[in-house]
Amino acid sequence: MDFLNAFVALSNFVLIPAIAYGSQLALGALGVTLIYGILRFSNFAHGDTMAFGAMVTILITWWMQSVGISLGPLPTALLALPFGILGCMALLLFTDRVVYKFYRVQKAKPVILVIVSMGVMFIMNGLVRFVIGPDDQRFADGERFIISARTFREMTGLSEGLAFRTSQGITIVTAVVVVAALFWFLNKTRTGKSMRAYSDNEDLALLSGINPERVVMYTWMLVAGLATIAGVLYGLDKSFKPFTYFQLLLPIFAAAIVGGLGNPVGAIAGGFVIAFSEVMITYAWKKVAGYLIPAWEPEGLVQLLSTDYKFAVSFVILLIVLLFKPTGLFKGKAV
């Protein structure tokens, strides 16, 4: 019984949150990795792209809520999501046309593009704060829990409760669907294949008649979709605040690099590696330990690091990977 209780506590505080957070990071890292593979630079504006997509979705959600459109038990934001993606696509395609294209034609060095993306980051960040303000925004509605801690206790008779929030369920389901669709697109469709070819070898791809502008356009559209979905899911699960999205840049990049920049499978694996380490290292293990080893009564919380240092976790993992396996766990492009 104690073992079951320990497992339930572990699922409640570690496994489920880490899987949800990992899915969000994986979606974010997929966007970063796609841009790196095809456009060949690290996009510093990615966090703010996520914020922008989420912001459009939130505005439309509010409008839908005000006219009484809802999805019943599911959050209205899911209905607004496609519009958010469209808005984000429009912004990214516009940015590509007026900003990035110039440097692509010039064949500028990647680091110049990184600096340019920094400028874009400033503008997007300013734009989001300008429209929605720098504060926390709430836009989740519908049923809060799939299983609440109390129902679970009544159902099973265990003393430990397991809460499974709707936002977590939606995150996991959406992430699985989106990733499956993305891989189907990259592996089976003509456009997806041309994208992979372009990423593998630009010159060969050009020789075989692939239109680079088309590839770039599809990349931005995919990135807009991934970024908006990741942003909305994160916002539903935690909360929407422009600055948090900027800070997500670090774990997202860590995930992409740990998995191997430019490698989509790696980005997903990296997302979960980062999320699990972050949650496990900052979790106070006292409760779980109490069930497993009843004789041991620790003084503190049995927490390896306080949650304020969660960025340090992704950072240390990043350093270890850079030191020992600079190409990432799965073979990425970077050297």
């Binding site: 630079f41 690290s42 990049f253 690099i257 240092y309 960025f311 950072f315 850079l322 600079p326 050297v335």
Partner: peptide, 16 residues
């Protein structure tokens, strides 16, 4: 390593 890696690493150390 690649120039991008230094960027990410410095971004991280600043936050820490």
């Amino acid at each position: 390593l690649r120039s991008d890696y230094l960027a990410i690493a410095t971004l991280g150390i600043a936050e820490i």
